[in-house]
Design a protein around this nucleic acid. Structure first.
Lengths: 125, 125
DNA sequence: CTTTACTATATGCTGTTTACATATACCTAT
DNA sequence: ATAGGTATATGTAAACAGCATATAGTAAAG
């Protein structure tokens, strides 16, 4: 199943590919953070579990893509943290992703309309 | 990339996993059809290309899941067609999928709000 | 009559991503 | 010491995607 679990309470339905990525970029654009810290933020914002192992891989992939940069933070107590921040490319990707998700949203509503017309015509729901 | 191309004009952004499946179920619930015929309908409804090879595989998977049934149609001119129809399990899945996609939609709008507040506060867009 | 194009279904292959498990290591409290 | 929380990372198998290719019936053109 999809790790972009933000998108759905149920498995198998309606998860959006790579939905975590814009979510992460938005969170990081508000304040830089590290993988372990993002889990809680993502869950708070999306009400869903995110697999921590895949989150780390996602962050590395996003860095490889140039959307985020990382630096080791050795100052604080506890283990070192790899702190991520958004790049200008990342902001650009975020903008495009939001635009694309808006189109996705239109198609979604298209389906909702079709379903409503075909299967909910005479119910009060 | 995702074959559920219904969900997006751009690749890499906002495609919804398994979005074709509810689309197919809705179309089939309106009138039974076959793989090759569904391509056009899906493109008409969603404005996107669907890989025909993957569509056939998707239909077989859906049949294996019990969501659709198929019969060979040898009557018409041209090559034989495997005609698909929705089962009651399929209608049940469609209902759940629509409900799940509604939750997905809520999360999408959550992201849109967050983005708007963080990055579009002082634009006229 | 044969070649081209359209209709129709299906499989092969490879890369990406996912879910789940596991490894490593620092730090704090008991 | 040892248990538990913080933190990053990799191993692995399965699923699914995109793209190419195989097969075959039909129909029109030349």
């Amino acid at each position: 199943m999809c790790d972009c679990s933000c998108a759905s309470q149920l498995k198998d339905f309606g998860t959006i590919e790579r939905f975590v990525e814009p979510c992460i970029l938005l969170l990081l654009s508000q304040n830089p953070s590290h993988g372990y810290g993002l889990v809680e933020d993502l869950e708070k914002r999306c009400g869903e579990k995110v697999d921590i192992g895949n989150l780390y891989r996602t962050l590395r992939r996003m860095e490889k893509n140039g959307w985020v940069t990382s630096d080791w933070d050795t100052n604080d107590a506890g283990p070192d943290r790899r702190t991520y921040a958004v790049s200008s490319e990342g902001l650009h990707y975020l903008k495009e992703a939001v635009a694309s998700l808006n189109r996705t949203d239109t198609l979604l509503h298209h389906l909702f309309e079709g379903y409503k017309n075909a299967h909910q015509k005479d119910t009060t729901l």
